[in-house]
Each structure stands twice: as C-alpha cells, then as structure tokens.
C-alpha cells in the first residue's frame, strides 16, 4: 500500500527508536531465564548443583537429554500427545466457535439462559471426587475420549470468541440468511473465515492446554497405553523432593529402604526444554494470523 508518508518526522523517529529499545529490553528480560534453563539442561548435573552457571554451560553434556529420550514408553507417550493435541484441539475449536456463534445471536431464544450457564460454570467447581464419578459413569476411564470430550468446551474461550464474533457486522449474516443459508452454513462459510485471528488464537490455546495436560492422564488412566508425554515428564520430575510432603514421609523412606533422591536440577531443566520445544516450533505457523492485517495492505479474510 503506497502513498504513505515517505519520510519519518523526527518525533516519529524517536518514537520508533524508543519502541524498539523498550521491546528489545523486554525481549531480553523474557529470553534470559529461558536461555538459562536451556543452558542448565546442557550442563552436567553435579556441576549445576554448585550453582553459578548463567550464560554458557560450564561442563557441557548431552546426557540429560539422552536420559530423557531413553525413557521406555516415549514413543507411545509422544504419539498419544500428538493425537490428543491435534484431535482435541480441532474438536474444541469447532465446538467453541459453534457455541459462541449461537451465543452471539442476540435474537436467540436460549441466549440468556446459556450465557448465564457459561459464566457461572467458570467459577464453580464440585471438586475432584464428584467429577471423577461423572467421568467414571460415562465410561471414560481408561478411554482415549477422556482427552477429548471433557475438553470440548472452555467457558472462558467461549466468551472470548463470542466477543469477537459480536464485532462482525450483522449485515453479513442477514444477507446470507436472505439468500437462504441456514445457520450452520453461515457459521462455516462466513463466520469462521472472517474470524481467523480468534480461530488461530483458540487453536493455539487449546493445543497448549492439551499438550501440557497430565493430571487427567494421572487420575483417569492407568498410565500405560494412554500415557502422554507431559505425564511421563512430570513423573520424572516428581522424583524430585518437591513431592515430599512432610517429615514423616522422609523418615518413612529412609527407614523402609526407599531413597530420598532429588531429580537433579539439570534434568528438570531438560524436561522443561523437551516439554516446551514442540510448542515453540508450532507457534510460528500460527503467528502469521496475528501479523496479517497489521502490515500495510493486509487483507481481511
């Protein structure tokens, strides 16, 4: 898109410089700790224990990563994680978009009721045991669907999506209706294509939720066939003494032939890296949906 000012005024130059400076500083602040985690993951555990490793591994080793990648059921876990992320995220996003479209229709009869239900559901919880019984009675225990169905809706995402759809001009929908389209077609042909930024956001959020989720693997499955990557990693982490609750626990271990070993900090760091890397790789693909439309001449939809 040409025709913009071809020179920058001094104030704009200063503004730009300031902008870049602030953002760079912010970037460094955010990046450094993660870099530190990465560095520690590549540092020998015993050496890390002594502290003082900041910008570069003092005693480089790939052992930590090797140890993690040698976990026995890594392949099953990885496949399960991928499957649940892809399938779960797709299902979730579609459901959320459908539901929020219904909610965005001001003339929808059930709108008020459903809206209230959604908001209330965000702040109430019956606790673990009742929820466990619901899962159990639905036959979802030890079933892959336990990763999909309970994730189908998320009240917060529904509201956010609805808020976006609200801002789309209703004339589009009305003219489509006049042309004889029903609501389902409107959703698929018009709403979703126009809501790419929010769809991309939802894909990212739901994918991350699925990827990071381990608690459901822990409570609702036996942890073998349906194990997920995150769960396996957290299991290693839980060898850390962070899982010890109290003094009796420690003594009980020492006197019963158990051990009190802490997961070395290096392993914990390596786990963080392994758990996060896939997301970091996927995100750049999503990013273009945020970037588009901001640069000159961005086309919507």
């Amino acid at each position: 898109m040409k025709g913009k000012l071809s020179y920058r005024s001094p104030s704009e130059r200063i503004g730009n410089a300031l902008l870049y400076a602030v953002l760079t500083l912010l970037g460094v602040l955010m990046l450094y700790p993660f870099w530190n985690v990465f560095v520690l993951a590549l540092n020998e555990p015993l050496d890390t224990l002594r502290g003082g490793v900041y910008l570069w591994p003092r005693k480089f080793t790939l052992d930590n990563l090797r140890q993690i990648l040698q976990m026995r059921n890594l392949l099953t876990a990885f496949i399960n994680s991928i499957l649940r992320t892809v399938i779960g995220s797709t299902v979730s996003v579609f459901c959320i978009m459908m539901f929020s479209y219904c909610l965005s229709r001001r003339d929808f009869v059930m709108r008020g009721l459903l809206q209230r239900m959604v908001v209330i559901s965000m702040y109430i919880s019956g606790g673990l045991i009742p929820y466990y019984f619901v899962i159990r009675n639905l036959g979802l225990l030890n079933n892959f669907l336990v990763y999909i169905i309970p994730f189908m809706l998320n009240a917060f995402y529904v509201l956010v999506a609805r808020s976006f759809i609200d801002q789309l001009p209703s004339s589009l929908r009305e003219s489509a209706q006049i042309d004889g389209a029903n609501d389902l077609m409107i959703l698929i042909r018009i709403i979703i294509p126009l809501s790419l930024p929010i769809v991309a956001t939802l894909v990212l959020f739901t994918a991350v939720d699925q990827w990071n989720s381990w608690y459901d693997t822990y409570i609702y499955t036996k942890g073998t066939d349906l194990t997920t990557l995150q769960y396996e990693l957290v299991k290693v982490l839980s060898k850390s003494t962070a899982s010890i609750k109290n003094y009796e626990d420690v003594q009980s271990r020492l006197l019963s032939g158990g051990t009190v070993t802490s997961t070395p900090q290096s392993i914990r760091m390596a786990i963080t890296v392994v758990a996060t890397l896939p997301i970091l790789c996927v995100y750049p693909f999503m990013q273009r949906y945020f970037i588009q439309g901001l640069t000159l001449g961005g086309v919507k939809g």
């Binding site: 459901c95 459908m98 539901f99 479209y101 219904c102 909610l103 229709r105 003339d107 929808f108 009869v109 059930m110 459903l114 239900m117 959604v118 559901s121 109430i124 919880s125 019956g126 606790g127 045991i129 009742p130 929820y131 019984f133 619901v134 639905l138 169905i149 309970p150 189908m152 809706l153 009240a155 029903n182 609501d183 389902l184 959703l187």
Partner: peptide, 26 residues
C-alpha cells in the same frame, strides 16, 4: 430457530454433565 437450537443443545447438555452435575458434591 431450530437449527440454532440443534447447534446449541449438545453443548448445553455437555455443560450440565461436566459442570453442573458434579455440584452434587457440594
């Protein structure tokens, strides 16, 4: 609005099952 209702109903059921049924635990 039956199509809208059809679209929304499953989710209402979902919420009843997963969000409100556990409240019995209160």
């Amino acid at each position: 609005q039956r199509i809208l209702v059809a679209m929304a109903l499953p989710f209402m059921v979902w919420m009843l099952v997963f969000n409100f049924a556990p409240l019995m635990g209160w």
